[in-house]
Computed example of a mutant assay.
Amino acid sequence: MAALETLRLVHELGSFTAASERLDVNQSAVSYTIAKLRACFGDPLFVREAGRQVPTERCERLLEQAGTILDLLDDMAEPDTFDPARTEATVTLACNFYERILVIPRIVSALREEAPRLSIRVVNALGDGHLRLLRREADVLIGPFGRPESGFHSRRLYEEKYACLMDPSHPHAGRRLDAETYLSLNHILINYGASWKSAYLHELEAAGHVLRPAITVPSPAGIAAVILGSDLVATVPSRLGQSISEGLAIRDCPFPGAFDISVVWTARNNASAMHTWLRDRIFAACR
Rank of each mutant, 00 (worst) to 15 (best):
A3G: 03
E5Q: 11
L7V: 13
R8L: 14
V10A: 11
L13P: 07
F16N: 05
E21K: 15
L23K: 15
D24L: 01
V25N: 02
Y32E: 13
T33M: 06
R38H: 08
R38G: 04
C40A: 14
C40F: 12
G42E: 14
E49S: 12
V54M: 12
V54G: 07
P55W: 05
T56N: 08
E57N: 10
R61F: 07
L62V: 08
L72W: 04
E78F: 00
E78R: 13
D80T: 04
R86Y: 02
T92C: 09
C95F: 06
R106V: 03
A110W: 11
L111A: 11
A115W: 07
R117H: 15
L118R: 02
I120R: 07
V123C: 12
A125H: 01
L126K: 13
L126M: 14
G129D: 11
H130Q: 14
L133F: 04
R136L: 08
V140S: 08
I142M: 01
F145H: 04
G146K: 11
R147P: 06
E149P: 07
G151Q: 10
F152D: 09
R155Q: 15
R155W: 11
R156V: 15
R156W: 08
K161G: 08
M166P: 01
D167L: 06
H172L: 15
G174R: 13
L177P: 00
Y182T: 01
Y182A: 14
G193C: 07
W196C: 01
A199P: 02
L201E: 04
H202S: 12
E203R: 04
E203L: 08
L204Q: 05
H209A: 13
P213Q: 00
A214D: 11
A214I: 00
I215Q: 11
T216C: 08
V233T: 02
R239K: 12
L248W: 09
C253M: 02
C253E: 02
I261R: 03
S262C: 11
V264P: 01
W265I: 11
R268E: 09
N270E: 12
N270L: 03
A271Y: 02
A273M: 05
T276P: 04
W277Q: 00
R279P: 03
R281E: 00
C286D: 02
